[in-house]
Computed example of a mutant assay.
Amino acid sequence: MKTTLAADVNAPSEARAFVATLLGTSHLPAGVLVERVVLIASELVTNAVQAGATTVEIGVTITAQRLDLVVIDDAGGWPTPTSATPDDTAGRGLSIVDHLVDTWDVASRKHGKAITASWFDQSDQRADGGVLAE
């Protein structure tokens, strides 16, 4: 499922509402937390707006084993994680993304880019982070 938003000050909250509503009625892979996906959608859309996008498309694909959140924007530039200091008021978004998703990547498009954040089924993981023996 996907939606397209105008890249304005309302886009992050509209993205949160879209993702929260969609995930609230979906069966998610084990261990995937709605709150994390909603937060990452908001962070990526905020970055797109701040980068000068005019439109932002959000897509969510869910299978039993994986959830992919794709944010496509038409802004220039490339997302690059930075190291924010405690006094910085910005610059933490991609660090948050990196910390809360299983994997993420960026693909160039004719006009802009597509960022895919993915979460995987965690049902075969032990509490200590190891993989259960089969």
Rank of each mutant, 00 (worst) to 15 (best):
Ala114Ser: 13
Asp87Glu: 15
Trp78Thr: 15
Lys110Gly: 07
Ala75Ser: 13
Ala114His: 03
Ala127Glu: 09
Trp104Val: 08
Thr89Glu: 15
Lys113Phe: 00
Asp121Ala: 13
Thr85Met: 13
Gly91Asp: 13
Asp102Ser: 13
Ala114Arg: 05
Thr80Cys: 11
Ala114Val: 04
Lys113Gln: 13
Asp73Ala: 07
Asp73Cys: 09
Ser123Leu: 02
Gly112Trp: 01
His111Lys: 10
Ala75Lys: 03
Thr82Asp: 08
Trp104Phe: 10
Ala90Glu: 13
Asp98Ala: 15
Ser118Trp: 01
Gln125Lys: 06
Gly77Ser: 10
Ser83Asn: 15
Ile115Thr: 13
Thr80Trp: 04
His111Leu: 07
Leu100Pro: 02
Pro81Asn: 05
Asp74Ala: 07
His111Arg: 10
Asp128Gly: 06
Pro86Ser: 11
Ser95Asn: 15
Ser123Ile: 01
Asp87Val: 14
Ala117Arg: 04
Arg126Glu: 08
Asp128Gln: 06
Asp73Leu: 03
Asp74Thr: 11
Gly129Lys: 04
Asp105Cys: 05
Asp105Val: 00
Asp88Cys: 12
Asp74Lys: 07
Trp119Met: 03
Gly76Val: 08
Leu100Met: 13
Gly91Val: 10
Pro81Phe: 05
Phe120Leu: 13
Asp128Ala: 05
Ala117Glu: 01
Asp124Arg: 12
Ser118Asn: 03
Leu100Ser: 07
Asp121Ser: 05
His111Tyr: 04
Val101His: 02
Thr89Arg: 14
Ala107Met: 09
Ile115Asn: 00
Lys110Glu: 14
Val101Tyr: 03
Pro79Glu: 11
Ala117Trp: 01
Ile115Asp: 00
Ser123Met: 02
Thr89Asn: 14
Pro81Ala: 12
Trp104Met: 06
Ala127Arg: 08
Trp78Lys: 10
Asp102Thr: 12
Ile115Gly: 01
Gly112Arg: 02
Asp98Ser: 13
Gly129Asn: 06
Leu94Met: 15
Gln125Trp: 00
Ala117Thr: 05
Asp105Gln: 12
Ser123Trp: 00
Ala75Pro: 01
Ser95Gln: 14
Ile96Trp: 04
Gln122Gly: 13
Gly93Thr: 09
Gly76Asn: 11
Trp78Asn: 11
Gln122Phe: 00
Val97Tyr: 01
Ile96Asn: 09
Ser83Tyr: 12
Ala127Val: 07
